[in-house]
Amino acid sequence: MKLIEISNLIVYYNTSQGLVKAVDNVSLEISRGEALAIVGESGSGKTTLALSIPRLLPDNARILGGSIWLYPEKVDLTKLSEKELRRIRGRRIGVVFQDPMTYLNPVMKVGDQIAESIVYHQNCSLKEAKEKVLELLKKLKIPDAENVASRYPHQLSGGMKQRVMISIAISCNPELLIADEPTTALDVTVQAEVLELLRNLIQELKIALILVTHDLGIVAETCDKVAIMYAGKIVELADVYNLYRDPKHPYTVGLLDAVPTIKESESKISIIGGSIPDLINPPSGCRFHPRCPYMFEKCRQEEPPLVNFDKNRYVACWLME
């Protein structure tokens, strides 16, 4: 069952140096119960793409084209008023941000921060909301829930803060959970715990997950579908098994080989030269062409479309022609 359909979305940032083409003509779909990963290096536009769904972008962001349909009623989120959006944010779409230290209000008890959205969306009293908070914290296997709820963010460990963030996001049983690099600020063992928690939640609550990350490792464990982003574009979109078994786009291949793993067979890493382009003046044609080992003339001049290559598989590369 389709939940979100993004079509030809264009989001630019207004800056004094010019327009930053952070998301340029991107289309995506996500269904209920599905976990989609948006993967790419920093600056490729992942956060911009993900946060344009609940329209939580910075003030200088402009949605210049395309639409974001929310099903089943098929409303275009890019056209809604702030007031209408408020009934969707927190209630139907929850967000977990990267750094729980800065994304939690430092002067408010975490229990109150969770209760807040419950009070607003479920029409209940503060007292009832607080009881629900305790239930929620217990569901997230947080020991000593009463105690945690009455603390301020700085009194909690990183992993605990991220669990609080997650409970804020899921407090009203949303249909979509957006997690933007939810474990990047955490240590490996804590990351494993938080991911386990996320996996269990989406199974149990049957919600759709959009996981934004630069780490292909955690994607392999957690997601069903993967969108690889490069310089504001989706360059490959595939089912998780196919993507790892047989990556098609040269950037995907490079990305998979660029990080060392503890897999027994692996030890050699290959590299992608160069670095991410400036998004104010992105390269012509295929935006990856200056770094691509297979680049030929056409890549420099024409932009490759994202074409359906075989079932559930889309690649934007002239090699696929």
Binding site: P54, L56, E82, L85, R86, R87, I88, R89, G90, R91, G94, V95, F97, D99, T102, Y103, L104, N105, P106, V107, M108, Q113, E116, S117, Y120, H121, M165, I168, A169
Partner: peptide, 24 residues
């Protein structure tokens, strides 16, 4: 950043401003 979190909860702007921004 915590203002973005407050907005992501769908809170009315008045609450975002008085409870979250002003308090800090």
């Amino acid at each position: 950043d915590y203002i973005v979190t407050a907005r992501s909860k769908g809170l009315p702007e008045s609450r975002v401003i008085f409870r979250h921004a002003l308090r800090n």
